[in-house]
């Protein structure tokens, strides 16, 4: 039972870590908590489902690709100009991104013919570890999460755009003073974050079902898990997602599904009281 809980927890955490990475990139760099990010990801999931007839790989690329300009423009056209206003505070961004989430929700409902979908991926059969067997495709989700994390780290360290992202997240004032175009960095980060959320939503849609509720759920869970890991700390986000996945898995096994949320959010409150900057500390200095 323990091995079963462990494997399922890891898989759940792996899937959750994808929107977490999206949130971590966006909030870690722009300082704006975008609560619509899950819905934008779900929009990408629905787009993938809609274009399945052109072939799965291309449909996935379209779904992920369409979320990039949404995030890029949301930041460049709305959030960056707004952040220059004196009245701009976290409450304002909370209300605006929530409202944007409802707009995306309306768009999904009006554009796509079904409110709930599942995305047909080829199945890989069961993988057995000891007495436990799990759908092989779930392991692919975990693998993609780890690859995405390593890719982000490599891009951050070995490309000019990546170093600009890293610099902006660590010291915004300095990044501006030395000549980094921080507005463009914010837009790029938001575009990349929304694309990562789309990857998470596509996997969710392949393993379970995708609807509007999933979008809000992934967005809020992603944000909470990113805070627990340490905002801007991408490794912290992954560890936090895996731990939270295991907490939910074991709580479900030992106490039943109804206790999952109680245990999970109880731990969230406890961690934030003990370490407000998350378990691995935040890299954000602003």
């Amino acid at each position: 039972m323990i091995l079963d809980g462990l494997i399922n927890g890891l898989i759940m955490g792996g899937i959750l870590s994808l929107p977490v990475l999206g949130v971590a990139v966006v909030y870690g760099i722009t300082g704006v908590p975008n609560f619509a990010i899950g819905l934008i990801g779900v929009f990408g999931g629905f787009t993938t489902w809609y274009f399945l007839s052109v072939g799965l790989p291309l449909a996935i690329l379209i779904g992920i690709g369409i979320c990039f300009p949404i995030g890029y423009l949301l930041q460049g056209v709305l959030l960056t100009p707004l952040s220059r206003k004196k009245e701009a505070d976290s409450t304002l961004f909370f209300l605006i991104t929530i409202s944007f989430g409802f707009i995306v929700e309306g768009a999904i409902r009006s554009v796509f013919p079904k409110p709930t979908i599942s995305i047909a991926f080829p199945r890989l059969g069961a993988i057995h570890i000891g007495d436990v067997s799990a759908d092989g495709f779930k392991f692919v989700a975990l693998f993609v999460a780890v690859v995405a994390l390593i890719a982000i780290r490599l891009l951050e360290q070995h490309t000019k755009a990546g170093r600009s992202l890293q610099a902006t997240s660590q010291n915004l004032k300095l990044a501006t003073l030395i000549g980094i175009n921080t507005n463009q960095v914010f837009s790029l980060a938001h575009g990349a974050g929304c694309s990562l959320a789309a990857v998470g939503a596509i996997f969710w849609g392949a393993l379970y079902t995708l609807d509007m509720g999933t979008g809000w759920h992934l967005g809020f869970m992603g944000f909470i898990i990113a805070v627990i890991g340490g905002i801007g700390n991408i490794w912290g986000g992954l560890i936090s997602a895996l731990l939270m996945g295991m907490v939910m898995s074991f709580a479900g096994y030992f106490l039943g599904g109804v206790w999952q949320s109680v245990i999970l959010y109880g731990i969230v409150i406890l961690v934030l009281i003990i370490s407000p900057r998350g378990i691995l500390g935040s890299e954000r200095s602003i």
Partner: peptide, 22 residues
């Protein structure tokens, strides 16, 4: 500026490289 003019979580060399962005 008066306060720390560094990127705190980057290695020294990368700080210098990033400062040469232009």
């Amino acid at each position: 500026p008066q306060e720390d003019y560094i990127f705190p979580f980057m290695p020294v060399k990368r700080n210098l490289q990033v400062a040469a962005v232009l």
